[in-house]
């Protein structure tokens, strides 16, 4: 994989850089493809199992592809007190999938996150990296409906 090759080049094929390398692969592909892990293991010369342990240990890595829109509900303490859990339940009802899963149509991935440090905005939902402060169940369903209606951006063709 050319992209993986380039990422490894950027840091150097050293053990101490594997987490950074995986982070960049995650950013590029939105998940860690198996071939990418195999390639990193071979290039950095570390046992595949060590890489697999790292990939499953840290929060920011995902071994399965993500949906078009990534919805993250913050479950920090402040968000929990102000009803974050209810938002999770509302999303489970709305999307028909559990936390950590993707809708069958590939449109939404739904995750929870333990505090993004924006506690004054609790309860907080992040959709595609954008902050939605002081969220309510009702508002959330409306945002979802809007996202569903919006067509995916047209492909740029040459």
């Amino acid at each position: 994989m050319r992209e993986v090759e380039a990422i490894i080049e950027r840091y150097g094929a050293k053990r101490r850089h594997v987490i950074a390398i995986l982070q960049d692969i995650q950013t590029q592909f939105h998940y860690l493809p198996r071939e990418a892990l195999l390639e990193v293991a071979a290039r950095v010369r570390i046992p595949l199992i060590d890489l697999y342990s790292i990939a499953t240990f840290y929060n920011c890595f995902s071994l399965v592809p993500r949906g078009e829109h990534v919805i993250r509900v913050c479950l920090g303490t402040a968000c929990h007190l102000k009803g974050g859990t209810r938002l999770v339940e509302a999303l489970e009802r709305e999307l028909g999938v559990r936390e950590g899963e993707m809708t069958p149509d590939g449109q939404f991935s739904f995750e929870t996150v333990r505090c993004v440090g924006a506690c004054a905005l609790a309860p907080l939902v992040l959709i595609d990296g954008r902050y939605y402060p002081k969220m309510k169940q009702r508002k959330l369903t409306q945002v979802l409906a809007r996202l569903r209606r919006a067509r995916p951006p047209a492909e740029v063709t040459q």
């Binding site: 060590d50 342990s53 499953t56 240990f57």
Partner: peptide
């Protein structure tokens, strides 16, 4: 061998 290891946390 490094065949097995811990996964998840």
């Amino acid at each position: 061998a490094h065949a097995i290891g811990f996964v998840n946390r």
